[in-house]
């Protein structure tokens, strides 16, 4: 029984840690669905539905939370997303989101700027930020 409980807790912890939380500044009142978040990170939408500017921040290439985010939110492979940005960055038509190196950096950015949006492992969420969606 004890073993089973451990196993269940283990599974629970695993599934929780695999979740991606999309976070914004607590002052943000807008709601965003998957497609809207994807459009923001692909450079198509540059403002919240309410009209204020929005600036997305990525985690570094190869980061496991980023991989999960790209799989479940953008729904394209890292190579496809990179190829997509290749069409913009080498033509003066746009550039991919800036990258931050850790969940803590994303939290810092988001809590200090009302226009920032980022994603972190849901384990890292602090009361300083507002979770707008989880995947």
């Amino acid at each position: 029984m004890k073993r089973l409980t451990t196993l269940i807790i283990g599974l629970f912890v695993f599934s929780v840690s695999a979740e991606v939380a999309v976070i914004v500044n607590p002052s943000v009142g807008d709601a965003l669905d998957r497609k809207q978040i994807s459009r923001i990170f692909m450079g198509k939408d540059k403002s919240f539905p309410s009209g204020s500017d929005i600036t997305p921040f990525n985690l570094a290439d190869g980061n496991s939370v980023r991989q999960e985010f790209e799989k479940s939110v953008i729904q394209r492979s890292a190579a496809q997303i990179n190829a997509y940005w290749g069409k913009y960055v080498f033509t003066g038509k746009g550039s991919p989101p800036d990258t931050l190196s850790s969940d803590a950096e994303v939290i810092n950015k988001v809590k200090s700027s009302p226009d920032a949006i980022g994603y972190i492992s849901s384990d890292s969420v602090t009361p300083d930020v507002k979770v707008i969606a989880t995947f």
Binding site: A83, G86, F90, T91, G92, K93
Partner: peptide, 24 residues
């Protein structure tokens, strides 16, 4: 957005990134 200088003539769908093989 305004660009000024030496640029790519936008003849085709892939003109802008003709040389960026990774993008096609």
């Amino acid at each position: 957005k305004l660009n000024a200088g030496k640029l790519r003539v936008p003849f085709y769908r892939y003109s802008d990134f003709l040389d960026v093989g990774f993008s096609y």
